[in-house]
């Protein structure tokens, strides 16, 4: 269980940033995962009072605050319309409504967890992470970065003329995924594969003519590992199946 002495609600991002430079302090999102470790820290830094919750839709982009809960993402009309329901599909298998009312998008994305459904989804969209000091970074780049002491402020999704499909494969309906897959199709195709079980990754290319071939080759292009939910070999098969099925929905 996570033990700490202070629970601080900074009044500004600058204050939060300053606090976060100390190793003994930790930023807490929805507190879904952080507390599961046996960590001891002096203070947890809570961004709840910085107005970072909520989804703002602009003409050319969505700005999703770091403290937006997964449940808000699931129910947001505009964003789900834009993603063809992929946003809802990416989160609705995560534990349960009560859990999704707690945990935040910022926590999920910042954590860059191997099992993350949402990281997979955003990798397939034209998404950027706005860091307090680091500025706006393409999410594909952010996904590869090491953890630092910066603060994730929001996620930006640039609107484009694309169609998106999200699928995941789970051994049990609310378990961590064995594999996740998000594909968006516009002028080209972006395929993100997650829960490999390493961090999600994305490949981008021209729209293929031979879907079967694309599914096989794209599935092969990722690397996979083994854990109790599935072997590397099996994950590659599932990747192929999810890519193929997603394509059939898109084309």
């Amino acid at each position: 269980m996570l033990r700490f002495k202070n629970h601080i609600f900074p009044g500004s991002l600058e204050e939060a940033y300053e606090l976060n430079q100390k190793r003994s302090n930790k930023i807490v999102g929805g507190n879904g995962w952080l507390r599961l470790g046996s960590k001891q820290c002096v203070s947890i830094i809570d961004l709840s009072n910085l107005g970072l919750d909520g989804i703002e839709e602009k003409d050319d982009e969505f700005i999703i605050g770091a403290m937006t809960t997964l449940r808000e993402l699931e129910l947001n009309k505009g964003f789900n319309e834009y993603t063809g329901g992929a946003a809802k599909e990416a989160v609705r298998h995560i534990v349960g409504v009560q859990f999704r009312n707690c945990v935040t998008l910022g926590g999920s994305i910042y954590g860059r967890f191997g099992f993350s459904d949402v990281l997979t989804l955003f990798l397939a969209l034209d998404s950027y992470v706005e860091m307090y000091k680091g500025g706006v970074i393409p999410i594909s780049e952010f996904a590869k970065m090491k953890y630092d002491n910066d603060i994730l402020v929001n996620i930006r999704v640039k609107k484009a003329d694309i169609k998106t499909v999200y699928t995941s494969f789970r051994n049990q309906s609310t378990d961590f995924p064995v594999l996740t897959c998000a594909i968006s199709l516009g002028s080209n195709i972006k395929t993100a594969i997650g829960a490999r079980p390493a961090r999600a990754d994305v490949v981008e290319g021209e729209i293929p003519k031979d879907m079967e071939k694309y599914a096989i080759e794209t599935a092969k292009s990722f690397t996979y590992g083994s854990n109790i939910r599935g072997s590397a070999e099996y994950r590659e098969q599932i990747a192929y199946v999810l890519i193929k099925r997603s394509l059939s929905k898109l084309i």
């Binding site: 051994n171 049990q172 309906s173 609310t174 378990d175 109790i228």
Partner: peptide, 9 residues
Amino acid sequence: QYKLPTRQD
């Protein structure tokens, strides 16, 4: 890490 059936299963 030990999954019980949920009502969806």
